[in-house]
Design a protein around this nucleic acid. Structure first.
Length: 273
DNA sequence: ATTCCCTCCTGCGCGC
DNA sequence: TGCGCGCAGGAGGGAA
């Protein structure tokens, strides 16, 4: 599932139910997901108050006074608010109870993660998994100038540079394809052969696509739902993703599918040069 | 340094 | 209707 829009939709959905509330219980139904859960998670968060929520790239953050819980939804995860004691289904792995509300992590493929960063270990942004991340695409630091500077002597295809996440975070396969389409850029073009002017167009496209996707509740292909259990509907707005062989919604040409770095790319040969 | 390739895991859609 | 296969939103890590 989740790229930046889905994570942000999740954060916006859970935020009103958990901010300022005390964790009263924690249920772990397995030892971990991608990595083992923090060994002493009970002691770390039960009895503590969620000061605020945040997001860094595709990591969702629950800030406490003494540290932060990092939650990654992997490919198939979701977080929902529901009444405590709601019977657990097959892939419900973690429940964080906050009084009369409960935050439940569901993740069929178990590529997700729950990690702890203690304030005693230094700044959160220096966490091993966060420190190499690029800029936030919806922040003021994300500019055409930054994209241009960060792609000098970078001969990899622009699509793969977007996915790598070290220039800009949160743009996964779907939104990389859609952004490149909107910018009129062929995904195979080497990043260091794209002009500053085209990076201007691309940076605007990325911002617009992500913002629109958030507004529409994200994309639901199979399993993504927001905190309220509702599906997103940005997938109805796709111009190229998963539309191989179909007609381009702009020029009526045929959408092409290629593989780049073991990932599917979709683009229009006419519209994207 | 990059870049490729593999890996974690379940579920679904497709072709036979 | 059933079964096997390939593929899927992410991304760390090891090898080359």
């Amino acid at each position: 599932m989740p790229e930046l829009p889905e994570v942000e939709v999740t954060r916006l959905g859970i935020h009103p139910y958990i901010e300022g509330r005390k964790v009263t219980g924690l249920i772990l139904r397995r030892d971990g997901l991608r990595w083992p859960f923090p060994a002493n998670l009970q002691q770390l968060i039960v009895g503590q108050t969620v000061v605020s929520t945040g997001r860094r790239g595709k990591y969702l953050l629950l800030h406490f006074s003494h540290g932060s819980l990092l939650i990654h939804l992997g490919m198939s995860g979701n977080l929902r608010i529901m009444p405590p004691h709601t019977p657990a289904q097959k892939h419900d792995h973690v429940d964080i109870v906050l009084g009369d509300q409960m935050l439940r992590l569901t993740d069929p493929r178990r590529f997700g993660a729950v990690l702890w960063h203690d304030h005693a270990d230094g700044a959160l942004e220096e966490h091993l998994l966060l420190r190499k991340l690029g800029v936030e695409p919806l922040s003021d630091r994300f500019t055409d100038d930054l994209m241009f500077q960060q792609t000098r002597q970078r001969s990899a295809p622009i699509k793969q540079v977007l996915l790598a996440g070290d220039v800009v975070v949160g743009v996964g396969n779907i939104y990389a394809c859609e952004s490149l389409f909107r910018a009129g850029i062929n995904p195979k073009i080497a990043a260091d052969r794209i002009s500053r002017k085209r990076y201007q167009v691309l940076s605007v496209a990325i911002r617009q696509i992500l913002a629109e996707a958030i507004k529409q509740g994200g994309s639901t292909l199979k399993d993504f739902v927001g905190a309220d259990g509702k599906t997103g509907y940005f997938q109805q707005s796709y111009f190229v993703y998963d539309r191989a062989g179909e007609a381009c919604r702009v020029c009526q040409g045929t959408i092409r599918h290629i593989t780049q770095g073991q990932r599917s790319s979709f683009y229009c040969v006419n519209c994207q040069k």
